[in-house]
Amino acid sequence: MSLLSLEGVSRVYATRRGLFGTPVPVRAVDHISFSVAPGRTLGIVGESGCGKSTTGRVALGIERPSEGTVSFEGAAMPTPGTPEWRRLRARLQLVYQDPLGAMDRRLTVAAQVAEPLEIHGIGDKAERQDRVAALLRDVGLRADLAQRHPHELSGGQRQRAVLARALATDPALLVADEPVSALDVSIQAQVINMLTDLQEARGIAMLFISHDLKVVRQVSHEVAVMYLGRIVEQGDPEAIFADPLHPYSRALVSAIPVPGPRRIERIVLSGDPPNPADRPSGCAFHPRCALATASCRAEVPQLKPAADGRQVACHLVEAA
């Protein structure tokens, strides 16, 4: 059974154009559905403004979907702010890109890792101390760093501390939004290995959101490619990154610079991704797509099963 499931979820924001303009609805996330099983990782890739972070916030229950349903462990996600929602916080945790912004600069690492235990009333003081020490050990932080403040740690150490805090309540789901993007390559590898080890040891499910396809490929069991609020391709990361079927995924994968020979010929897209407030008709990708036909301009393609069990939302990809 799936741990987290999103069914036809949209998130609409109202933005105003100019000071006196009329509000324009912006569909940051548009009819997306997916599920994550316990202990598995779904990677979400896409560029700025594609709705990947909004998806993460909706999945966590921090934001209510405008349409569709989010369910966690088979039950509907409670309304934010209610006592049920608060109780559920311990089961769902978030880690994001900037660990310094996520930490309280006046508190020591140990105090911050202990905080969720205090909030959720887990253990007594001595038990909490033991637990904090164990958590810091799990994320590979030396014991003497427990009494340091965030500014005394390196970027990698801070991200480990944030992770220890997220794991304190033994969550079932971790939403990791660009968790290693601010780290140098050698440190990034340390944190990625730690994440996959912790997932294996604790059976945590992950929603791993990143613009970095190489990192997503490394950690994900399944991957979803987003463009302008919609999932355009979803399936096995090996298959998608080796042979993307959607023209946007193809361009995205081909754009990744690699040391050494590349498998897919570079496709350079013209122009910028469109403004979500000004969504092109039909397939949102059609103005930048070299293959677009009349039906692409008229009709929104739905995700449908294609070869090897993956799902693709493109009129030009043969359905399986």
């Binding site: 560029e47 754009a255 350079v268 991704p273």
Partner: peptide
């Protein structure tokens, strides 16, 4: 920059 824009600028 985003990946597809990075590709444009490198080009």
């Amino acid at each position: 920059l985003d990946a597809t824009i990075q590709a444009q600028i490198l080009d």
